[in-house]
Design a protein around this nucleic acid. Structure first.
Lengths: 108, 108
DNA sequence: TTCTAATATAACCATATAGTTATATCAATA
DNA sequence: TATTGATATAACTATATGGTTATATTAGAA
């Protein structure tokens, strides 16, 4: 399990404002100036949220004249769904831990 | 979209240690004392992580003598997968926002 | 009952996060 | 070129987070 990539995406999603941005962008792409009045927080705050989403590859931007249009990338969402739907089998890790003496037995 | 419930689960998952605990518990249930040496952090740190997971209903505990055995609840994972797989249609919200004059048009 | 082992909670600390205001950047237009 | 409007970045602040050590709780064993 690529814990790092997954954590980046999960952290990006784990905020109500960003989650709602994702939902809005799922319906249609928006520019920054549209999102500002919707959420009632400052424009820099929205920009930072979008930057966080972009860093997780959850959104893409295209400049259109004065505006920057953000749109949703669904692949990271599908990645999360895939990993959570089929968590890795850690049996081998348990065996390795046992071999390393890291696995305490507690009679369960 | 119940943003609050989803955010609680996502925040609980958005940490490498907790994500790995979830993966381990997916393979088999563990007591706290097994997890401590695996992650190389203090017992209270593990307890706090488990408490965070429990608060999101991602794990259940049963006491077994001196030990507390933690096991994975898969329902919250399925909930996340379901929501991310079918994000709500926000078309009505866009209409409402437009009616409230909150939707700036930027010619896209 | 006393002692020991497993777990949870409290108090604390350093860093991350989400917001703010001020300012810089950049594209369109006068 | 100068100005304006949209967005990004910088600097800052308050709170949340993830770790620590110390201590309380709880169950079993002596």
């Amino acid at each position: 399990m690529d814990s790092g990539k997954l954590v980046t995406i999960l952290k990006a999603l784990a905020d109500p404002t960003r989650l709602n941005i994702v939902a809005l962008l799922n319906t249609r792409s928006c520019c920054v100036c549209e999102l500002v009045p919707i959420f009632g927080i400052s424009q820099p705050a929205i920009s930072k949220h979008l930057s966080r989403l972009k860093q997780a590859n959850l959104v893409s931007e295209t400049r259109k004249g004065m505006w920057v249009i953000y749109s949703l990338n669904r692949e990271p969402l599908e990645y999360v769904r895939a990993v959570l739907g089929e968590l890795p089998d850690m049996t081998e890790d348990f065996k390795r831990l046992e071999a390393e003496g890291l696995l305490v037995s507690c009679d369960d």
